[in-house]
């Protein structure tokens, strides 16, 4: 599918410091795209460029095949990691103001606000000031403000921080709902379990360079190590262990089972198949557990970042 957002060879320098070094990305339409990277990798610089807060030194960014211009401001919604609203301004007025800045008419903004306030059950907050609200409540307002103008590209930086599990779930469902309605979502986070759960595509930026990009399962395939976790019940565990070690590289494994069997991580050498391993193990005892070890996003992240 045609990507909704294309980042082409973007370079951004601050003085002598290179924040983005020739970074290119393709965000498919309708996807949830995880933008990963350790702190200071250059994610925020990239997000700011996409939001036209700053300009790239070279390279370009295309939205729907068109070079970024002021028209696109109304088509992007951005929730920064550092949340912020005017503390002494009333919730309703503030939301109206921010929506109008995004190009909505007052009437449209009001209708959208009514819809979202109803949906998130925050109707009574209209005349409250932000400083009277709790942090989680303010986060909800921040979310509403981000999505109010029905942007086709949404950028969330750590969207779940500050929410209790109930509200985090609520927001997650809303994000999925927006995706189903056709919005594309860029999702920057350090919480790998939510990447695992939500993202269709990921990109990993480290030290100003893009290291990985692709469909989540493609990336995982790429990082598969042909390692299997096995559990074998036998009388003589020590004998079995030395036998297996004679043929394969193993590590102790840790997974939950009911019996006290031998638990191992077995790495298959190149050219061998899982079928051979399983056949071999079946001769040795009762195989109670046999699962390919799929690399988690967390593993991929740590492996890639620490390799450098």
């Amino acid at each position: 599918m045609k990507p909704i957002l294309e980042v082409k060879n973007v370079v951004k320098q601050y003085g002598d410091y290179t924040a983005l070094n020739n970074v290119s990305l393709q965000v498919p339409k309708g996807s949830i795209y995880g933008l990963l990277g350790p702190n200071g990798a250059g994610k925020t610089s990239l997000i700011r460029i996409i939001n036209q807060i700053t300009m790239p030194d070279s390279g370009e960014v295309l939205l729907d095949g068109e070079k970024l211009n002021s028209k696109h401001i109304a088509q992007i919604g951005y929730m920064p990691e550092e949340r912020g609203l005017y503390k002494s301004m009333k919730v309703g007025e503030q939301a109206l103001y921010l929506a109008q800045l995004k190009g909505l008419s007052k009437k449209e903004a009001k209708d959208q606000l009514d819809y979202w306030f109803e949906k998130l059950e925050i109707k009574g907050w209209w005349n409250k000031k932000i400083q009277e609200l709790s942090k989680g409540m303010a986060q909800k307002i921040q979310f509403v403000v981000t999505v109010l103008h029905q942007p086709k590209l949404l950028i969330f930086d750590e969207p779940f921080s500050g929410f209790d599990p109930v509200n985090a779930n609520l927001i997650k469902d809303e994000i999925l709902g927006l995706r189903d309605k056709g919005a594309t979502i860029i999702f920057s986070t350090h919480r790998m379990e939510s990447v695992e759960e939500l993202c269709d595509d990921i990109a990993l930026i480290h030290q100003s360079n893009k290291l990985i990009e692709g469909k989540l399962h493609d990336v995982k395939k790429q990082y598969r190590t042909n390692t299997f976790e096995v559990g074998i019940a036998t009388d003589n565990q020590a004998q079995l262990l030395s036998d297996i070690n004679g043929r394969y590289k193993t590590l102790p494994a840790n997974f939950k089972t009911l019996d006290e069997e031998l638990k191992l991580q077995v790495s298959l050498p190149d050219g061998t198949t899982s079928k051979e391993l399983l056949n071999y193990l079946l001769q040795k005892g009762d195989v109670t557990y046999f699962v390919e070890k799929i690399p988690s996003v967390n593993d991929i992240f740590i492996q890639t970042v620490s390799k450098r």
Partner: peptide, 9 residues
């Protein structure tokens, strides 16, 4: 307040 980032987007 950190609202600046939202405004200038």
């Amino acid at each position: 307040n950190r609202i600046i980032e939202i405004i200038i987007s």
